[in-house]
Nucleic acid binder design. Structure first.
Length: 801
RNA sequence: GCCCAGGUGGUGGAAUUGGUAGACACGCAGGACUUAAAAUCCUGUUCCAGCAAUGGAGUGCGGGUUCGAUUCCCGCCUUGGGCACCA
């Protein structure tokens, strides 16, 4: 008996990686005429944690997908890079004194090795690193182009302030009222800030035509953009020329409105109370609200509502009544920052009860008048209007558009659309980012740096410890700050703030196919060919940040004429989250699992297949290494089968496997693709023919690239398995001659029979009725119904005769 | 509170235009090989009763539709994710 050498994963994997790299197997010819396929993963941040299991969980299947598409005949482009600006490196520097550039460089070096050990088909020639001047020069260039297009502006605004990181946060980074990075409660602070006018694209961003995205992600973005249709209603102020404009989506409740509430930070508040006896109380409340962090202001559906009377009254345009005007914390600077308040809104209702403001109902279930004094909460259901002038007696939903038109006709209102989306705050009072390319001159004011002077290099001689006043560490570099005005050449100062790293990651996928051009950001011809990205794989946590920003920047660049496509990512797939003992892996929890040891012990193929075998790719799961031996055994058995003497198995076996694996791969069901190959191996217990072995190697190639290549070459091939064409099955060989039919009597399974594939209904039913197990159930019975599902089962319905 | 996705053996999971529930793998039990162990191979493994043949129950819970429901409908429970005073 021949002795088969054990599969030496470490030697084999090293050998093929060296070979692939030498032959530049994964360098994509971007000019090739073959159909293109841009296969992209969200690039990693080079953190001190290095590449962890989560990265593997998404990158390995992404690579398998790319390899599969390659074998299906596509010219696959699969680049990788590093999203290397950002807070963690800077925070680490503050703690240890090691310069962020140095830590980042070290981490990138290590992660390059890890990404290499993965054996994935990255095109390293296209690599981008966002913290390198060659890259951020063009991030700055995009800022300038956006500036010229009027999509960038600066304004003083109350911004989210993290007292822990001593920096400003975007809304998206303070979503739950705590800092994304350090979990400190977020407060508000007035600062002059740079914004990208993403709101101008709100409507366009709601268009998902032609995109194959998860419904869930789309809904999350739609909710984030938050479009609503409503009416701006004019409330004249008593004894004044002033009008308060309130935005509402419920004009049908107008007759119920008994007070007006203004957001405390609304500029009109000062004017209303100035010099009155109410001024002190109103200002006091406004200050209190400002001090509240986002959690307090939004806590528990708003139990702690606070407010103050302004001393003013407005006129309800429908009833002509005089109604009091308040400020309160539950009204935000959204819409007009002023709301009409009534008994058909739970928040208004609670506030009115607390501040003893009269309420009245105008809607009830049946249209019979009801009184709020008997109610413990607002009536928010739909119903019939009463005490509502000409609208009484009709359904409030029907009345809504009519009242909106009525208000417009009488000059008391205007139909409007509002979005919850706010402009994107992009400036950061931080060191480790791309400097905002703007110069301030006493004569010329704010001057964008001319294109030819880019990049504005990030200086190295700075003290990056936070000053505590919210100023950027760049202020400590005299060399950096002092410059000359690009327009008038007189002494000038540089902007010292840097850009949000999300700006850097909003366009990296355009840089990859542009071949790292020195004098241009993009190779427009290549972008026209390669965009949009055909498959984008990454975590769902980016739904309302990266994925929204990237769409926005892409659309802006489209409108500027740089890219032809209107959307960056045609198809989007989120991998599931991988947890450890039910918790998200994080350094602070100390539950981060490193892939390196597993890769060393079992090999990259086994490790990646184990991750894919855990369950559906989009589902994720809790990490444990219990079953990894099962995959190792499978690899060993696969290797053994390939090396055994050629045998002869049923030809159906491999063709059925090809059919099933192809179907599973198409659906990205890697777990069942693997189990199908396992079944193939288990089924070939008597060995397999050479042809079958070759096809088996091809089937496993996307999932276990090193193993497949080794097997492929062992079987006598000379060229890489990844240059071979994905096997096709013979339809004639996937059907069996004999099929098993299940027999049910009165809905219960009572047995099975084997019949020829070609058997007719009558024959199958006759055979079934005569079957040993079935006969006894039919004694003394009359068959009242016979159902035959071809190739599957027979269902007999009987009753006593 | 609102929106979305789930709940299947001891474990990860498979199977849905309604058609034999538990593929594949882990674990466990027994056996072979071995002085022994590891590794490997073979057999069994949803639960209950039975030596077995076989019978009964069974896909979160309670109803319904159907010859037939993990799959469809109604009402709950529960886990995870997202949003949350946006008027």
């Amino acid at each position: 008996m021949q002795k088969i050498k054990n599969y030496a994963h470490s030697k084999v994997e090293k050998k093929w990686r060296a070979d692939w790299s030498k032959k530049k197997l994964y360098k994509t010819d971007l000019k090739s005429k073959k159909p293109k396929y841009y296969n992209l993963v969200m690039f990693p941040y080079p953190s001190g944690d290095k590449l962890h299991i989560g990265h593997w969980y998404s990158y390995a299947p992404a690579d398998s997908w790319g390899r599969y598409m390659t074998m299906k005949g596509f010219n696959v482009f699969q680049p990788i890079g590093f999203d290397s600006f950002g807070l963690p490196a800077e925070n680490y520097a503050i703690k240890t004194g090691i310069h962020p550039a140095k830590t980042t460089k070290t981490n990138i070096k290590y992660m390059r090795k890890q990404l290499g050990d993965m054996g994935a088909g990255w095109d390293w020639d296209a690599e981008v690193v966002t913290c390198e001047p060659d890259y951020y020069r063009w991030t700055q260039w995009i800022f300038i182009k956006m500036y010229e297009k009027g999509l960038v502006y600066k304004k003083t605004a109350p911004v989210n302030w993290c007292p822990g990181c001593k920096t400003v946060l975007a809304n998206e980074q303070a979503q739950d009222g705590t800092c994304e990075r350090c979990d400190s409660p977020v407060t508000k602070k007035d600062l002059s800030q740079w914004f990208f006018a993403i709101k101008k694209y709100a409507e366009e961003l709601l268009n998902y035509d032609g995109l194959d995205w998860p419904e869930k992600t789309r809904l999350m973005q739609e909710y984030w953009i938050g479009k609503s249709y409503g009416v701006d209603i004019n409330f004249k102020l008593e004894n004044s020329e002033e009008t308060l404009v309130a935005y509402t989506t419920r004009p049908d409740t107008l007759y119920s409105v008994t007070f007006i509430v203004i957001a405390p930070e609304h500029p009109i508040v000062d004017k209303l109370v100035k010099g009155t006896k109410y001024e002190q109380e109103v200002k006091h409340v406004a200050e209190e609200v400002k001090k509240q962090n986002l959690i307090e202001r939004a806590s528990e559906g708003g139990k702690n509502k606070i407010g103050a009377f302004t001393g003013k009254y407005a006129i309800n345009p429908a009833t002509g009544e005089k109604i009091p005007v308040y400020i309160a914390n539950f009204v935000l600077m959204y819409g007009t920052g002023i709301v009409m308040a009534d008994a058909h809104d739970q928040r208004d209702f609670e506030f009115a009860r607390k501040y003893k403001i009269p309420l009245k109902f105008v809607i009830s279930k049946d249209g019979k008048p009801t009184d709020p004094k008997d109610a413990s909460e607002a009536f928010i259901d739909d119903g019939i209007l009463f005490n509502s002038g000409e609208f009484s007696g009709i359904n409030n939903k029907e009345a809504l558009p009519k009242m909106a038109s009525w208000l417009e006709k009488n000059g008391n209102g205007k139909k409007t659309v509002n979005y919850k989306l706010r402009d994107w705050l992009i400036s950061r009072q931080r060191y480790w980012g791309a400097p905002i390319p703007v110069v301030y001159c006493d004569k010329c004011g704010e001057v964008p740096v001319p294109e030819k002077d880019l990049p504005v290099l990030l200086p190295t001689d700075v003290d990056f410890k936070p000053s505590g006043d919210g100023k950027s560490p760049l202020n400590t570099s005299k060399k950096f700050i002092n410059t000359t005005c690009p327009k008038c050449k007189s002494p000038a100062r540089r902007e010292t703030e840097t850009m949000d790293t999300f700006v850097c990651s909003s366009w990296y996928f355009l840089r990859y196919p542009s071949g790292n051009l020195k004098d241009k950001p993009f190779d427009t011809k290549m972008l026209d060919k390669w965009l949009p990205v055909d498959m984008y794989i990454g975590g769902p946590e980016h739904a309302c940040m990266h994925l929204l920003y990237a769409r926005f920047i892409h659309k802006a660049l489209h409108d500027l004429g740089y890219v032809e496509s209107k959307e960056p990512f045609k198809r989007l797939v989120h991998q599931g989250m991988i947890t450890k003992d039910g918790a998200k892996m994080s350094k602070s929890k100390g539950n981060v699992v490193s892939p390196d040891e597993f890769v060393k012990q079992y090999g990259s193929d086994v490790f990646r297949m184990y991750l894919m075998f855990m369950g559906p790719f989009t589902q994720g799961g809790d990490w444990n290494d219990k079953g990894i031996m099962g995959i190792k055994r499978f690899v060993d058995r696969f290797w053994k089968l390939i090396n055994e003497k050629d045998g002869k198995e049923s030809p159906n076996l491999i063709h059925k496997a090809i059919k099933k694996v192809t179907e599973e791969m198409d659906k990205m069901h890697f777990n069942t693709a693997i189990s199908t190959i396992m079944e193939l191996i288990n089924g070939a217990s008597e060995g397999a023919s050479k042809e079958t072995k070759k096809m088996a190697a091809q089937l496993i190639a996307p999932l276990a690239p090193h193993l497949a290549e080794e097997c492929w070459m062992t079987l006598g091939e000379k060229e890489s398995v990844f240059l071979s064409e994905w096997p096709k099955y013979d339809p004639a060989l996937v059907v069996d001659d004999k099929i098993t039919i299940a027999i049910q009597v009165n809905g219960k399974l009572r047995g099975t029979i084997e019949v020829p594939n070609s058997a007719e209904k009558e024959f199958v039913i006759k055979t079934a009725k005569e079957a040993e197990n079935i006969k006894k159930y039919l004694v003394g019975m009359t068959t009242i119904k016979e159902i035959y599902v071809p190739g599957k089962l027979i269902s007999l319905v009987v009753k006593p005769s």
